[in-house]
Design a protein around this nucleic acid. Structure first.
Lengths: 241, 241
DNA sequence: ACAAAAGTGTTAGGCCTACACCCATGA
DNA sequence: TCATGGGTGTAGGCCTAACACTTTTGT
């Protein structure tokens, strides 16, 4: 490991970090993964100890190929969650001169979408936790601002690419899908219109689980048709709401 | 001025730069402002000498409030062009580990839109030049990639906010406006449909310059109605093409 | 038995698209 | 005089938005 004070430069350099906004969905509400600060081994990285914050950490100048790699690495180290670099979407840079009390730190924020059902077990319960979108605690640094911007970015992106596959379990219902869209876009839709619209894309296929539905009370189960879904993701799609 | 080797850190830090993609429009073609590298006084900043590149430079850790301030400051220093910080839109971060041969440098790219008619005189002709979109030379670093990403970002943004006010002269014609949209979106539109669509927004007002138009051959001159234009910019608008 | 959840189809209106002709200028 | 550029309106199609009733389960 590096010795203290080993690295010198002709001009001052900022530190660079990557932060992760990880969205999950439990079928009812949108959630965000946060960590409790304070477990860092290195004294130099201690700040806002005991507060909740976004997962993230310093760029490793020697080994992180891009800041997205930093995001993936730190997320795994801090929460146990293993995501691929391409699961991260860049949200933006936060570079305010006083955003970190220790030194000049600029951070590159990313967001990622995960299936809550899959990853809950992988997550270190002690230092990390899933918080409802409507119930976020005070966060360290400017992380509340980052969170807001990341959410509004997700809100934009949902118009151009189908979301859902990443956030929903393999098998899901139309009401769940609709609720997800309503949670992200913060509006309410008419059930019939929503169903018609989704059916036009031809990305849903009914799941037959043997038990024939008796009434209409129990929702129909669907899964995504991977081929059409991927095609739409590549080509983009225009979703009007 | 700082002495060499004065700044030491416990861990290696990257350098951070801001780069600017400045788009202009001359009534026919979209253009980009580039600088010729090599005029830097400091030896440490020399790389790709003699090549064309995007304007931009290193974050001043002590004084630049944000990287957008870096962008504005460097643009002025390198090209003479004075833009406000809020004229810059962030495009994204480019952090590839080998993108700069000198040391680890991550850059935050921005784009800005300017009226070519206004700023041409302000621009240092020696070190800077306006290049047609269709005729960009080889660029230093990964600046060609940055340019492509910035352009595609502009292409996205144009769907949600009216562009034009920033790029066109005070007084302009519908064919000019249409050509601008066609240049950015790389498609052709029907004249009548384009005119109808624009008129729905109620942001254009005819300019009476005394000389009554005799035929239809000479195009009608318009200016933007600032109030409605600003309102649309705030609220966003949905432009379907 | 009543409230809540989920499924289903139709109609009207608005927006997008496609399309043709006239006039004036400049070559 | 002919080609070019610019202005103008309409009809059809598609997508969006609004809307009600039935079934069943859980309380």
């Amino acid at each position: 490991m590096a010795k203290k004070g080993q690295y010198t430069y002709e001009y001052p350099h900022p530190a660079v970090t990557a932060d992760c906004v990880v969205f999950g969905y439990d079928g009812k509400e949108l959630k965000v993964l946060l960590i409790k600060r304070g477990a860092e081994k290195e004294a130099s990285t201690r700040a806002y100890v005991g507060q909740w914050a976004l997962p993230g950490g310093f760029l490793d100048v020697e080994t992180d190929k891009t800041v997205a790699h930093t995001a993936a690495r730190e997320l795994k180290e801090e929460t146990g969650l293993k995501l691929s670099v391409k699961d991260f979407k860049e949200v933006g840079t936060f570079s305010d001169i006083k955003r970190d009390p220790r030194e000049r730190v600029i951070t590159v924020a990313h967001y990622a979408l995960v299936k809550l059902t899959d990853v809950r077990a992988d997550t270190d319960a002690d230092n990390a936790g899933w918080f409802s979108w409507s119930d976020i605690p005070n966060l360290a640094f400017d992380h509340d601002k980052i969170l807001r911007v990341a959410f509004s970015r997700l809100k934009q992106d949902i118009h151009f690419e189908p979301v859902g596959f990443e956030l929903l379990p393999e098998v899901f219902t139309l009401p769940q899908l609709q609720n997800l869209y309503e949670s992200i876009l913060e509006v309410k839709f008419d059930r019939r219109n929503f169903a018609n619209k989704m059916k036009h894309f031809e990305i849903l296929s009914e799941v037959q689980d043997g038990t024939p539905r008796k009434g209409t009370r129990t929702p129909i189960k669907y899964r995504f048709q991977k081929d059409n879904y991927e095609r739409l993701k590549r080509n983009g799609f225009q979703l009007e709401f």
